[in-house]
Simulated scan of single mutants.
Amino acid sequence: MQVTPDWLARLPKTELHLHIEGTLEPELMFALARRNGVALPYPSVEAARAAYDFSALQSFLDLYYAGASVLLTEQDFYDLTAAYLLRCRADRVVHTEIFFDPQTHTARGVPYATVLSGIRRALADAQAQFGISSKLILCFLRHLSEQDGFATLREAEPYLDLIDGVGLDSSEVGHPPEKFFRLFARCKALGLPRVAHAGEEGPPEYVWQALDLLDVCRIDHGVRALEDPALVAELIRRQIPLTVCPLSNVKLKVFERLADHNLRALLEAGLVATINSDDPAYFGGYVGENWRACTEALALSRAELTQLAINGFRGSWLSRPEQERWIAEIEAMTA
């Protein structure tokens, strides 16, 4: 059956790999800078957009952390999150699992509670107004020390009822998952589900470490897993989802062109691949655009798109009955 734009737009979707700080559009960045009296290194919105040309992950992160400097108050974090959730509504994202980086903000003197309350309030409003369900994942910055991660976890412990899990993000190369073995063991003891970025710029060995040392239930990115057949077999055996971010991978030069992306190969290998947007304000595409672009560039079939959508719900932290409800709607669309 033909894939039509209307069918793709109506398809229920998840987003399992989204950094809320990475949804900061230049227009909102400048609005918050004016509101908070923050000086930006760009004279205009246009100049900021022109800077969004990255040679690798680190060049993106440099700009990412500069942009985060405008986020100071609870209302700032609410406005940031609410703007993203409007995009979810437009793209038929019915469930999202959002990363946030408290260390990016507490290092600037912004209280942890300020960050958390602003994001949580927006998530609650989206559930009430749009029916968009969500989970919130605290990410540790891997370019910082494990000791810094422990300090962040201690600060978070009074609010663990508002956190659904933990993750590991930021610069991958040179910062293997094993660096955070003790921190993730502590998170496991606290009953927190764990995910980690691995296998984007880093080698398949980093995916092995995330699985075996950090005991994660999901791999964020994971596109380099195909380089290791034994790893592919293990990911399939454990049914570990991969939260793939196609447009991000192209923007950061993991793949030269979207047509070169291995998303279809991941699916054909039997891996639980999903489509996500990563840092869409910086990488030029929210989740709906990732779906549309992949459909065109890779000539994905309706069956492949259906499998990707189902994988998103299977890989989510929704309850099994909630997963089955959405999967039934997806399957009804393809009957």
Rank of each mutant, 00 (worst) to 15 (best):
R182P: 05
A68W: 07
V250Y: 01
D101Q: 11
A47T: 15
N262M: 02
A107Q: 12
H17S: 01
L123R: 03
L24I: 03
T114M: 03
A293H: 06
E155D: 14
L61H: 09
V216S: 08
R218F: 11
D101P: 00
P241C: 04
R292D: 07
P204W: 06
H105L: 07
P111L: 14
A198K: 06
S44Q: 11
T306S: 08
A259M: 02
A328F: 09
E201R: 14
C217T: 12
W208D: 14
L40Q: 14
W291Q: 05
Q103G: 11
E289H: 09
R108V: 04
P280W: 02
H221M: 09
E178N: 08
Q103K: 12
P280Y: 00
L72R: 15
R320I: 15
G312C: 04
Y65T: 13
L80W: 08
I275P: 03
A309L: 03
Q239S: 11
T334M: 03
R154Y: 10
Q127N: 06
P158A: 01
A185D: 05
A259N: 00
S117H: 15
T4A: 03
T295A: 14
R264I: 03
N290L: 06
M29V: 13
V250F: 05
A83C: 12
V244K: 04
L18T: 08
K188C: 01
G284S: 01
S59T: 15
L141K: 02
A82Q: 09
Q127H: 09
D279W: 08
H221A: 02
T114E: 01
R49I: 08
E200L: 07
T334S: 03
H221G: 03
P193T: 12
R182W: 07
K13Q: 06
D164Q: 03
G165Y: 13
S171W: 09
C217S: 13
C245P: 01
S133P: 01
A68T: 05
E289P: 04
L183H: 01
L160Q: 02
E296Q: 15
M1H: 12
R10D: 02
E324L: 15
D91L: 01
Q307G: 01
L305Q: 00
A297I: 11
A332C: 04
S301Q: 01
